[in-house]
Design a protein around this nucleic acid. Structure first.
Lengths: 179, 179
DNA sequence: TAGTACATGTAACAGGTTACATGATTGA
DNA sequence: TCAATCATGTAACCTGTTACATGTACTA
C-alpha cells in the first residue's frame, strides 16, 4: 500500500500527471522511493476508483491527453490516517553483500572491483544530493517548518551515501591488508 | 534472481533444509537479505529443477521428512559467474521517509513519535549485531580471509544502524528546535 | 536522421506477502 | 493446557519488472 501513499504525499502539494510523477520518483523523491511509470499508471487508476484522487483530462495537439491528478479530501484523510499508523523499518536487500558474504568463493579481486564500482556510484549519487542541497536548501539552519520535512529526507539520503562510501573504504582496506 | 543466489551463497558452506534457511534469513544473514519460508520453498524447488542443488530426504518420526539441500558443481559455477557480473546498487524504499516528507500535513508530533519508535528499533537491532560481533568475531583485527567476508557484511549492518540512529537524533533536534 | 522528450497505455511474468493447512513434540 | 518449535506445503493476491505499442515535436 505504500506506493499509493507515496503518490498521495506528492499530490498533497500540487496536482501531477502520471508522467510528471514518474520523473519525480526518478529525481528528488528517488532518495527514498522508486517506481516505474507502469506502476504509477496502475496505481493512479486504483486511487481514482477509491476516490482518493480525481482526474482532469487536458486535451493536447499531436499528443495523448494529459491526465492531471488531484488529491481529494478523502485522499487527504486517508493519508493522515496512514501517517498516524506505525510502520515497519524497511527490509534491507543488498545484492552486493550476498557477493561479499561468499567472497571466499567469488574471489577477493572480483569482490574488490565490485566494491570499487559501487563506491563510484555512491559518490556520484552523493554529489547529486549535495547539488540539490545547495539549490533548494541553501540556508539550511533557518528552514521553515514546511521546508524542514523534505530537507530531512534529503539529509537521510546524504548520510546514507556517505556511510556507504566509508564502508567501501573500510572493506577495501581490510581486504587488501597484508598484500 | 537474487534470492536464488542468496540461497546458493549459504549452501556453498554447508547443506541446509528449507526450514534452517528460513531461520538463517531471519537471523545473521537478515542484515542484508530477507525471505519468508514460502519464498524459500518455492525457490528451492526451482533450484532443484535447474540442477543447481540436489535434495536428500531424511525420514523422521512424527514429522515431515527433512529435505536437506546441497549445492551442485553446476550451482557453484553459476554462483561464481553471477558474482562476476556487476550488480546495481539496491533501491531504497523507506516508508517512514514518505511520512516525513509530508510531515507538514501529518503533523510534527506524529512524525516525532514515529521517528522515536524507529530509533528504538534501530537501537535494538544494533545491540543484536554487536552481540553477534562479540560472539563470532572477537579478534576483529586478526580475522582470516574467510572470516573477513562475512564480517564485512556485519560491519555494513552495524554502520547502517548507527547511521539511522544518528539521523533520528538530528531529525528530532531539527523538529523540536524553537519549542 | 537519429535520439530524446512528451504522454499514455497493455500484457506477461517474476518476486513477495498473507492466509490457510497439517500434525507431533517440548517446555512453561 | 497453551504456546512455541519443528517441518513442510498450497493458494490467492499484491507488487514490481520487462517488453511491446503508439505517435508527435524538437534538437544535435
Amino acid at each position: 500500500m505504500a506506493l499509493a501513499h507515496a503518490i498521495l504525499a506528492l499530490l498533497l502539494d500540487c496536482p501531477f500527471t502520471g508522467y510528471d510523477l514518474t520523473k519525480t520518483f526518478a529525481g528528488s523523491v528517488g532518495s527514498f522511493w522508486k517506481a516505474t511509470h507502469q506502476q504509477i499508471y496502475r496505481e493512479l487508476a486504483k486511487l481514482e476508483e477509491q476516490a482518493w484522487v480525481t482526474v482532469e483530462a487536458i486535451p493536447q495537439v499531436g499528443r495523448p491527453d494529459k491526465k492531471l491528478y488531484s488529491i481529494t479530501d478523502l485522499g487527504q484523510q486517508e493519508f493522515v490516517a496512514w501517517a498516524n499508523q506505525p510502520c515497519d523499518v524497511s527490509a534491507v536487500k543488498e545484492e552486493i553483500l550476498v557477493k561479499v558474504f561468499a567472497g571466499a568463493i567469488a574471489g577477493t579481486d572480483t569482490i574488490c572491483q565490485e566494491i570499487q564500482r559501487h563506491r563510484q556510484i555512491h559518490t556520484e549519487t552523493l554529489a547529486n544530493y549535495h547539488q540539490i542541497e545547495q539549490q533548494f536548501f541553501a540556508d539550511r539552519d533557518r528552514l521553515s517548518n514546511e521546508q524542514t520535512f523534505p530537507y530531512l529526507t534529503l539529509r537521510r539520503g546524504i548520510r546514507y551515501e556517505i556511510d556507504w562510501i566509508e564502508w567501501c573504504d573500510e572493506a577495501l582496506e581490510r581486504l587488501t591488508n597484508g598484500e
